[in-house]
Structures are given as structure tokens and as C-alpha cells.
């Protein structure tokens, strides 16, 4: 999931969602980056409204943990 997280961070920082930036974030986290996945991700996210997707997730509360620690 780290690739998608990288996209989310860039979305919040306002930096462009391109291959270079995603690769940079992932490498900073010590991830062994696969170029093809980065490419695919950038392409796939082109038509996605990230804000909206994130909002929808937020609307569904992280429902009731069964056993709180």
C-alpha cells in the first residue's frame, strides 16, 4: 500500500503527483521502488478525484474496534 500512501502525502503537500515525486517519497522511506508500478499508479490516478475518495473513507468511521486494548 506504500505507493498509494505516497500519493496521498503528495496530495496533501500539494506537490505534483508524478513519477519522480512518488519515487522520491518511497525511497526516503527505504522502499525498493519498482518503476513500472509507479508509472501505472500515476497513470491510474490521473482520472481519480483523490479528495473525494479520501472524504468517502473518512465518512465511514473506522468502525467500532471489537476489542479495545
Amino acid at each position: 500500500m506504500e505507493y498509494v500512501y505516497a500519493a496521498l502525502i503528495l496530495n496533501e503537500s500539494g506537490e505534483e503527483l508524478n513519477e519522480e515525486n512518488i519515487t522520491g517519497v518511497l525511497e526516503a522511506a527505504g522502499v525498493d521502488v519498482e518503476e513500472s508500478r509507479v508509472k501505472a499508479l500515476v497513470a491510474a490516478l490521473e482520472d481519480v478525484d483523490i479528495e473525494e475518495a479520501v472524504e468517502q473513507a473518512a465518512a465511514a468511521p473506522a468502525a467500532a474496534p471489537a476489542a479495545s486494548g
Binding site: M1, V4, L8, A44, A53, V54, Q56, A57, A58
Partner: peptide, 12 residues
């Protein structure tokens, strides 16, 4: 949840 929601929008 957010990362999954976003991933769900990715059809590649």
C-alpha cells in the same frame, strides 16, 4: 481506510 478507498478507485 483512506488508502483503501483511493486504491479502490484505481482500476489498473
Amino acid at each position: 481506510a483512506q488508502v483503501r478507498a483511493l486504491a479502490a478507485q484505481i482500476d489498473d
